[in-house]
């Protein structure tokens, strides 16, 4: 799956996107485990970050599959 980082999460990871290859679909805690393993700096942001799956906010029980686009969204501040 493709994982996108925005705003300060770009600073935390040093990139704006990554390809995450997984053997099977992931639930939210599993996805976080994978991400934090690669980017430990993300752990700090976790309480404030909302996840999006395919351009919609993901429900807490969402499953993230291989062909999904996942985005990590820190608190927004548009307008």
């Amino acid at each position: 799956m493709r994982v996108l980082f925005f705003a300060q999460l770009k600073d935390a990871t040093g990139c704006n996107a990554m390809e995450l290859a997984t053997a099977s679909p992931l639930n939210t805690p599993q996805l976080w485990t994978e991400l934090v393993q690669r980017f430990p700096a993300l752990a700090a942001h976790r309480p404030n970050v909302r996840l999006a799956r395919n351009w919609e906010y993901a429900a807490p029980d969402a499953i993230f599959a291989d062909n999904d686009e996942v985005a990590l969204l820190p608190p927004v501040s548009g307008g």
Binding site: V76, S77, G79
Partner: peptide, 12 residues
């Protein structure tokens, strides 16, 4: 406008 500032993924 209130909701935009809560939910729309745009960052200042």
């Amino acid at each position: 406008m209130d909701r935009l500032k809560q939910d729309v993924p745009i960052w200042k």
